[in-house]
């Protein structure tokens, strides 16, 4: 009983401590914001490794999600004779919800876990300490470019996810099931609002970008510097990012729509 209480207390302290350190970490990284202009090449490099290398998985997933939406949407709409509205259903679902959320989840799994593992290993092999001793600030040199790359890459990836998804819906709905192509596009154009739907979807993606890369980098710096510690931190990145994305998605949806 006492043991259980003790364990509960310790885990509460642990979590609060990590929470505080996490915020301090984000604050310290953002303080160095202007440092990125000193070495823009670092940002480009990170955009490549977390953005470009995630692109293929995003495109493939987007295509399949769009195709499933096309199929499901058609099957449901055709009962009301409303299959002409398929374009609206597919595009709204993608732009508002699925593209930012699924991209966020995929990004956490593909790029976020890699960031955590990389930084965790840098810590375990004393590379971060080495940088500090060479008077190079790891916040500016290692963390900031990764954070910004995540924030920039995620909305771009989400936009591409949505675009490919809409094409996937078109492929199934129009090419296979015979919905009128003109109706698919024109109804979509008429009902999808730029600020309400597209911009709010992108805002979600930006928020997820901040959260995922923040969690990923922080977990890397906060890990126990052993191989087990790094693997645990990687798992924590994926789990916490997923939870944070889903919870924030609800909050953002409630606020914006």
């Amino acid at each position: 009983m006492i043991n259980a209480l003790e364990r509960l207390g310790r885990s509460v302290l642990d979590t609060t401590g990590r929470f505080g350190r996490g915020h301090l970490f984000l604050f310290r990284t953002l303080l160095r914001f202007f440092g990125i202009f000193k070495r823009p090449s670092l940002l480009v490099q990170q955009l490549f490794s977390s953005g470009v290398l995630t692109l293929s998985i995003i495109l493939v997933s987007g295509l399949f999600v769009g195709m499933v939406l096309g199929l499901q949407g058609y099957n449901n709409l055709v009962g009301f004779g409303a299959e002409e509205s398929l374009g609206v259903v597919v595009s709204l679902a993608l732009v508002r919800e699925l593209a930012p959320v699924l991209t966020g989840l995929l990004f956490a799994g593909r790029a976020g876990s890699a960031m955590t593992a990389e930084i965790g290993l840098m810590k375990a092999t004393e590379q971060l300490a080495g940088l500090e001793m060479m008077a190079v600030d790891p916040y500016e040199r290692v963390f900031l470019p990764r954070l910004l790359a995540g924030i920039i890459a995620l909305p771009c990836l989400a936009a591409m996810f949505a675009a490919v998804g809409i094409l996937g819906g078109h492929l199934v709905g129009v090419e296979l099931l015979g919905v009128d192509s003109g109706a698919y596009w024109s109804q979509m154009q008429a009902s999808v609002n730029f600020t309400n739907d597209v911009v709010s979807g992108l805002i979600k993606a930006v928020v997820f970008g901040v959260v995922v890369s923040w969690i990923a980098i922080f977990e890397g710096t906060d890990c126990v510097p052993t191989s087990e510690g790094v693997s645990r931190a990687t798992t924590r990145t994926v789990v916490s990012s997923a939870l944070a994305i889903l919870a924030l998605d609800f909050v953002l949806t409630a606020v914006m729509f």
């Binding site: 092999t125 004393e126 300490a129 080495g130 940088l131 008077a135 190079v136």
Partner: peptide, 26 residues
Amino acid sequence: RTRMGMLFQSGALLTDLTVFDNVAFP
């Protein structure tokens, strides 16, 4: 610190750079 050198027990080389770039880094 730019006037201090430190040789870590593990070496602490940056693993994504070649030997040359590591030495050139500072």
